[in-house]
């Protein structure tokens, strides 16, 4: 599958690396992920809550967008990043619109299975907004923090 990966804030085309996918059921059945190689495929309706810190044994987690309207994976990604400190790749699979990528990145996604010939087009989407109102899984400072910093600087 062709893929875009987020590297230092930019989406770049990567040649598909072979990756052993392990489904949640198989993992729960006792399969051991191979360090640096295995990806956990987490279905849309699986509680990310139950995955726990063990998720860090995987090099990647694949989260699914069966249609672009199905936004459950945004919450799953944030839970993995913010609750379990997941540091591997979180890869979006399925129907992904250009104008959703910035939201996905904010929720912790950093790999996207999609047509890679237009990485410039998708990179532009990351620049659509210069500020954000709310904290998420990324490093962007919500505007209230920027306001507070500016107020302090002004004193």
């Amino acid at each position: 599958m062709p893929m875009l990966e987020l590297v230092e804030g930019k989406l770049i085309r990567v040649d598909t690396t072979p990756c052993e996918e392990i489904s949640l059921v198989v993992w729960r059945g006792g399969a051991q992920p191979e360090a640096g190689v295995s990806a956990l495929v987490l279905p849309n309706d699986a509680p990310a809550e139950d995955v726990g810190h063990e998720v860090n044994a995987f090099a990647a987690v694949v989260l699914e967008f069966p249609t672009f309207k199905d936004g459950r994976a945004y919450s799953q990604a944030r839970i993995l990043r913010e609750r379990f400190g997941y540091g591997g790749k979180i890869r979006a699979r399925g129907e992904i619109l250009r104008d959703q990528i910035a939201f996905m990145v904010r929720c912790g996604f950093d790999a996207f299975e999609m047509e890679t010939s237009k990485s410039g087009f998708y990179n532009q989407a990351l620049l659509d907004f210069s500020h954000v109102y709310q904290p998420a899984a990324d490093a962007a400072l919500p505007v209230w923090r920027q306001r507070a910093q500016r107020a302090v600087a002004a004193e």
């Binding site: 936004g71 945004y74 996905m104 954000v132 109102y133």
Partner: peptide, 13 residues
């Protein structure tokens, strides 16, 4: 209003 505007997690409820 500010919190919910372009909320990355809750735009595809």
């Amino acid at each position: 209003r500010q919190w919910s505007t372009l909320h990355p997690e809750f735009s595809f409820l």
